[in-house]
Design a protein around this nucleic acid. Structure first.
Lengths: 112, 112
DNA sequence: ATCACGTGTCAGCATGCTCTGACAGGTAAA
DNA sequence: TTTACCTGTCAGAGCATGCTGACACGTGAT
C-alpha cells in the first residue's frame, strides 16, 4: 500500500530525494544505522553538511533520529530510515496538486 | 508494474517533480493536452518560464512534445504526459544508488 | 503593411540550495 | 590539563534554479 501525503508533503518528499547525497545517505542508513560522525566518515562528506542533509530527510519523514548513549558516555545521534512507500504516477501527481497550497504564483496574481 | 530507470534517471525524475509548477503542469496536461501558449494562460505563468519547465519534464521523460499544425496554419507545440510509474521505497532508493554516477564527491576525494 | 497569435532563445537579476571552516559545549581517558 | 571523541550552529562563498522582459522569426486575416 502506498502512503497518503498531501500535495505539500509529497513535494517536500520529492525535494528531499532529489539529491544524490541524500539518496546515498538513505542507502547507507538502510544497510546499518549509525550516528552522524561515523556516517560522515563513511560517505566522505563534511559533518556540517551531513547534518543539514539529515535535517532535510527528517523533516520529510524519510528518516528518524534518536539520542543514544555509547558505553563510554558519548551522546550519539542515531538515525534510521522509515519505511516510506510512495507511488509516482500521473494520477498520483494530479491528486497531489489538489492539496498544493500557496507556493507558485510567482508574483501575486500574474495575469499575463 | 514499476519503471526501471537507472539511479541517474531516477534522480532526474525526482528533480523534475520537485517543483510545484511542474506538478501543476502535469496535472493540467493530464486532463487535456494543449500547446505552450494556451497552457501558459491556463496556469497563469509566463511563456518562457513554462517553456523551460516543459523542457525539464521532457528530459526526465515525464512528458512528450510534438508539432502540430492548427487549422489556420499555426505551428503549435503540443505536449502530453507519459504514463510513468515509479515506486519510492527505501529498497528502491538503495538500488538506485548502485547506478548513481559521478555527482557527489564535493571536491575530489574528500578525506576528512 | 499591420495586427494577432504561435514558436523559440537570451541576458540578467533574484532567490535558494550546497558546502566549508570555525566556534562552542560535553564526556571519558591519559 | 590535555587529548580525543561526540554534538550542535553560524557566516559567508559558490553554484544551480527560477523568472521576466525583450528580441527574432513565421503565418493568416484585415
Amino acid at each position: 500500500m502506498t502512503d497518503d501525503r498531501t500535495g505539500d508533503q509529497l513535494l517536500q518528499m520529492l525535494s528531499a530525494l532529489a539529491n544524490p547525497h541524500r539518496l546515498r545517505i538513505l542507502a547507507a542508513l538502510r544497510s546499518r544505522e549509525s550516528y552522524v560522525s561515523e556516517l560522515a566518515r563513511e560517505l566522505g562528506i563534511g559533518r556540517p553538511l551531513l547534518h543539514m542533509h539529515l535535517q532535510v530527510l527528517e523533516k520529510a519523514g524519510l528518516v528518524v533520529g534518536r539520542h543514544e548513549i555509547s558505553e563510554d558516555g558519548k551522546a550519539l545521534r542515531f538515525f534510521s530510515v522509515t519505511d516510506f512507500d510512495e507511488r509516482l504516477t500521473p494520477e498520483r501527481v494530479s491528486d497531489a496538486t489538489k492539496t498544493l497550497s500557496a507556493d507558485s504564483e510567482p508574483t501575486g496574481k500574474a495575469k499575463r
